[in-house]
Design a protein around this nucleic acid. Structure first.
Length: 616
DNA sequence: CTTTACGAACTT
DNA sequence: AAGTTCGTAAAG
């Protein structure tokens, strides 16, 4: 049996841990059954024997998700392989409907067959004893497979669509990536079990998670005391965490263990931390110091200082209401709203949202005018540069538009030439002169199939050969092309299989368009030139079917023009994008938020502003 | 400790 | 057969 499956026989790393159950007020948010694995100070225990051993073969119950030692319940590793769904005795007692199900056939031919039968066969029967690999089972309600990194029940696990935006998506083949990172979409990384670094990144969360996570910004102005701490990475809270944190602070870090999101979702890490919580350790090691130092002691000196100041301020406001209620978890604090004397709500510093908003508004009134003034004092170099950039972009846009009209003109000219050429008559005798003059023994090799071909027909052969190979691959994007006012650029044929639109030039796409059948009397009609570039005004008057010299000349000429048109469109698009970005940047500069968040420090212009020095 | 890269199992 | 995802080693 493979290591994978052997791994799956052990309880997952994040098996419900003692502390987690203890600290998680609402508990039930987890996938499994926290109720079974009871807590002991030492860590999680399993099975009927209630021992923490996990270094032997184990089997998981598909009802309560508890793990059992094979030895304790009389299931060998070998027999376990024949089981598809397994329930423990107590679950079967509680619910007689639960029935252990077996695989339809014995997996002899290695793991692959075994796993496939696990997923695909639905056969009943068999009389062999029981056991089952927990990780591979399917969630009863949603058919979502669980794995070590999936709970199978959270929003992320249930999601089936990739966002296409995150770095992992962009890495995927289907989004045209190099498949180097090879991780699933960030939005689909399990909220509970996936590694934290694989989930949606913090910066991206701010918008999507609304106010459940307040890092900078909102928290800065509504939340008085966090102002000084907001540079601390760990101070990123969800609402429930905020509550915990409040309690934690109120308790003077004594009785509660603060749990960051990471710890909550990775109980393994939690377990470790829970065992050696810093302050506990300290209390054991240096009890005398404990007496001297306030309870806010922490390992990080900087944080310590901040927290202490913070606490002092909290106490200060507490005194106003209660006359100095300290460490107790139930201390009532006064609302920080301007002029408000109501007690703050449980998990907040304010008695109501209104008070919070009032305070925030006050701050804006207080800070913004000053900042605006500050802003207006000095000329904005970025603004000046932006204006110059904008000018440049406009010029380029103009040039591109000119080029585009030129190309459109060429496009029509070419169509005119082509239709004009069709009116020509075939000249029978010239055909012969056209055809010979070459060494018929000479052979060249086709660049596509490497077959030797006669130079006379080489062009024709290679064109066809290339088309044959080219049409075997698709070259598409997820979106159809929408360019206003442009005709015949991309092929844009929809491929329902890959859900893409073909992005070859329409005139050059052998996959979706065949060269039209040429009537016997059609003339080649290629404009003849002298010295390569100089048109003579004459047309090739050989029968089109027989002209080897100008094979597919219309196609190639059209492609030439179309390619240039596409290039110009791209250029225009790029310029438009640049302009948009620049305008956004200019509009947002010195906006309310920017003014509140940032401040320009006026250094000594002579010694520090190197740019203006250079300009001078 | 985090990030990147990649072999290989798993899935379609 | 090709794409997806996991686990893990190496690099940073």
């Amino acid at each position: 049996m493979s290591e994978e499956v052997t791994g799956a026989q052990r309880p997952p790393e994040d098996a419900e841990g003692a502390v987690e159950v203890e600290q998680r007020g609402e508990g039930g948010a987890r996938a499994g059954g926290d109720h079974v694995t009871m807590e002991t100070p030492a860590g999680p225990v399993y099975c009927v024997c209630r021992k923490p051993d996990i270094n032997c073969f184990m089997i998981g119950c598909d009802c309560c998700t508890e793990w059992f030692h094979g030895n304790c319940i009389g299931v060998s590793e070998k027999t376990a392989k024949t089981i598809r769904v397994w329930y423990c005795v107590s679950c079967r007692d509680k619910n007689p409907m639960l029935e252990i199900k077996y695989r339809s056939k014995k997996p002899k031919d290695g793991k692959k067959a075994e796993l496939q039968s696990e997923y695909k066969t639905d056969g009943e029967g068999g009389s062999s004893p029981q056991a089952h690999m927990m990780d591979q089972r399917q969630s009863s309600q949603a058919n979502i497979k669980r794995s070590a990194r999936m709970c199978g029940e959270c929003v992320a696990c249930l999601r089936t669509e990739d966002c296409g935006q995150c770095d992992f998506c962009k890495d995927m083949k289907k989004f045209g990536g190099p498949s180097k990172i090879r991780q699933k979409c960030r939005t689909r990384q399990c909220e509970l079990r996936a590694r934290k670094m694989l989930r949606v990144k913090d910066e991206e969360m701010i918008g999507s998670r609304s106010r459940s996570r307040c890092k900078r910004g909102a928290g800065l102005y509504l939340d008085d005391d966090d102002e000084e701490e907001d540079d601390d990475e760990e101070e990123v809270f969800s609402e429930s965490e905020l509550e915990l944190y409040e309690q934690y602070k109120a308790a003077g870090y004594k009785d509660l263990v603060w749990r960051s999101e990471e710890e909550e979702e990775e109980p393994d890490a939690l377990r470790k931390k829970a065992v050696k919580v810093k302050h506990v350790k300290r209390r054991e090691k240096k009890p005398e110091k404990k007496k001297l130092a306030p309870p806010t002691e922490d390992v990080k000196p900087r944080r310590h200082k901040v927290k202490q100041r913070h606490r002092e301020r909290v106490r200060h406001s507490e005194r106003a209401v209660e006359g100095g209620a300290k460490d107790g978890g139930g201390a009532i604090r006064q609302c920080l709203g301007p002029g408000c004397v109501e007690p703050a709500r449980n998990s907040s510093k304010y008695c109501s949202d209104n008070c919070g908003m009032k305070l925030a508004a006050n701050r804006i009134y207080e800070i913004v005018p000053q900042r605006i003034q500050q802003w207006q004092q000095s000329p904005c170099v970025a603004e000046e540069m932006g204006r110059r950039q904008l000018e440049r972009i406009r010029k380029e846009q103009q040039a591109a538009r000119l080029r585009l009209t030129l190309m459109e003109k060429r496009f029509h000219e070419l169509e005119g030439i082509i239709s004009n050429a069709k009116l020509q008559q075939v000249q029978q005798h010239e055909e012969v002169a056209e055809g010979d003059g070459d060494d018929t023994d000479l052979q060249i090799f086709c660049v596509s199939c490497s077959h030797p071909v006669n130079p006379k027909v080489a062009l024709r052969h290679m064109e066809r050969c290339y088309a044959k190979y080219e049409s075997q691959t698709s070259f598409g994007s997820m979106y159809p092309t929408r360019i206003e006012g442009a005709t015949r650029l991309f092929c844009d044929v929809y491929n329902p299989h890959s859900k893409t639109y073909c992005k070859r030039l329409q005139v050059l796409c052998p996959e979706h368009s065949r060269d039209p059948k040429i009537p016997a009397d059609e003339v080649c009609g290629c404009p003849l030139v002298r010295d390569v570039f100089e048109p003579t005004g004459e047309f090739c008057r050989v029968s089109k079917r027989k002209c080897n010299k100008h094979y597919c000349w219309e196609k190639l000429r059209r492609a030439e023009v179309d390619l240039e048109r596409v290039r110009v469109w791209y250029k225009l698009d790029e310029l438009f994008e640049q302009e948009r970005n620049l305008r956004t940047a200019m509009t947002n500069r010195a906006g309310l938020l920017a003014l509140m968040l940032h401040q320009t420090i006026q250094h000594d212009p002579v010694t520090t502003d190197l740019r203006s020095l250079k300009e001078r």
